[in-house]
Amino acid sequence: MTTEQLHEVRLHVNGSVHEVRVPARRLLSDALRHDCGLTGTHVGCEHGVCGACTVLVDGAPMRSCLMLAVSAVDAEITTVEGLTEEDGSLSPVQQAFSDCHGLQCGFCTPGFLTTITAGLRETPDPTEDEAREMIAGNLCRCTGYQNIVKSVLRAREIQAEIQGERSRS
């Protein structure tokens, strides 16, 4: 068999540039995990259903298992590793998951965190139904989703608290 052509790809992830050499078929999920070493993004199905691999592409949640790394060159990608605040503390969404026991084995969690982070930008003050709708495309086998829905609402609260503090100071 002939040697597979490799492509030089510059991936912009969490504000840094990763230069990787990958074949065209390299899935973005694999490139992030294995070439960039960002193993926080998980792979649960590789056919777009589970959502564990969800990353933000120019701010919008997308399945990294259904994108090719070569096709992601022009995009700014955010993975779970890029969600924490600049000082290293947990983001409101991450903190909310901790407060509400929104995770058990943690495998689905990165996909939920990215999805909700974007979701709260679009719907900053969700009702419980909207919170459920926000996470409705991600599978979790452990939590039964009860505490993930609570986490969405709690994240909204934390965000409001932070904004309150900011506007006061």
Binding site: Q5, H7, A24, R25, D30
Partner: peptide, 10 residues
């Protein structure tokens, strides 16, 4: 579950 090889053009 990984794709078979293909050429790629963008």
């Amino acid at each position: 579950m990984k794709p078979a090889p293909f050429a790629y053009l963008r």
